[in-house]
Design a binder for these strands. Structure first.
Lengths: 199, 199
DNA sequence: CGCACCTACTCAACTAGTTGAATAAGGCGG
DNA sequence: CCGCCTTATTCAACTAGTTGAGTAGGTGCG
């Protein structure tokens, strides 16, 4: 049900093809609503059927044809109504890593550490991408200036949420590594190392 | 697939009924893996079939009977293996509010503000619950002491992630309200208020 | 020159998640 | 004492999300 509005909201940025949307849902939108390409193509079909978006086929020379989609007035109106009403379901997070951390005390700490480092690298990458998107949005203006004057601030505010999330993620990963280190130091020498030269 | 391990991980805390798990999944686990009671009952059935958990019926006097579930050795082993292998799918977040914020520029700012305040109240409630759970876990010990000495630190680390998430959420909500205020102040007087006393 | 990757989709089959209601007994408030 | 809440679960029907393969031409790399 909400994928529908995620798609409509994505089309606020302008005309896009299914393929382009699948890229957008991979970078910025994935931040708060994940969707696979299949889901998007299906949803676009549905929305076009409902008259909330309009399709036009663009013939291309050395590429397959593509269908570009635009919001209709009906679609924009539906989206505006959606934007003004309270969410009917709470935020859902599905994070496998946290299940693994919850159960980590039965696993090899070295394995756990590797998982955390992987997540850390991933978060760093995402954060870097978000920061680049932000620079592009600001286009040299200061944040306060932008927030006062820009036509649309929604996308910037969701971007801030994404940035904060990934920064928090990195801090948390660092903390977990610290704990892992400290416990490794404790556990790896059941007897303290010899101080008297006998070995 | 991962609900399976979320359930097994929840059973690390000890024997529980489906009903009890549905409560747990509402408070702490919901933080990183949401599940409805229906999903849990179905999953418990499946896991019992696979021999990863064991059921025992507890007859009760003034309540319906319940089935209490415990991890089997096979279940614990399966979970340990899971905990040591990298996640196969990335974290997915589904947050309707962020779609609404993304599209907020077409809606009444007063409506948007109400949504943000609702989220803020919810985050405050969740944070308070997390902090109480944390006090119970620490049981008077300091954090460092706990992290060095406790048998299991996984649940504490996921709790920290939840706490950080909700704190971040609150900061973000405050920021959004600020922006809303500033733009309302700008937009609500297309002409500046009279300074000359004529009114 | 062959292989992998990119654009741009579609189809089919499957698995996971959601919703609503039903059952059944006791407790609690007005 | 009526109706709603809580405990504790099951059933059935539905919607949403995932996976894998297929099509088809083009680009880039060694």
């Amino acid at each position: 049900m909400s994928l529908k509005y995620a798609v409509l909201a994505a089309l606020l940025e302008g005309e896009a093809s299914g393929y382009e949307l699948s890229k957008v849902f991979d970078v910025s939108l994935a931040n708060f609503w994940a969707a696979t390409p299949q889901q998007l193509y299906r949803e676009l079909e549905r929305l076009a059927g409902e008259g909330l978006i309009q399709a036009r086929v663009v013939r291309q020379e050395r590429r397959p044809d593509k269908r570009m989609f635009t919001l209709t007035a009906a679609g924009r109106h539906d989206l505006d109504t959606f934007a003004a009403t309270p969410p009917r379901r709470p935020t859902a997070i599905r994070d496998e890593l946290l299940i693994k951390i919850q159960a980590m005390d039965g696993a090899d700490p070295e394995d756990t550490r590797a998982l955390v480092e992987e997540r850390e690298a991933w978060a760093r990458g995402k954060l870097a991408r978000y920061l680049r998107v932000r620079e592009r949005l600001l286009a040299g203006r200061g944040e306060e200036e932008y927030l006062r004057e820009a036509d649309r601030v929604g996308p910037y505010l969701t971007l801030l949420a994404g940035i904060a999330l990934e920064e928090e993620n990195l801090r948390w990963c660092a903390r977990v590594r610290e704990v892992l280190d400290r416990r490794a130091a404790r556990g790896e020498r059941p007897r303290p190392p010899a101080q008297d030269g006998t070995r």
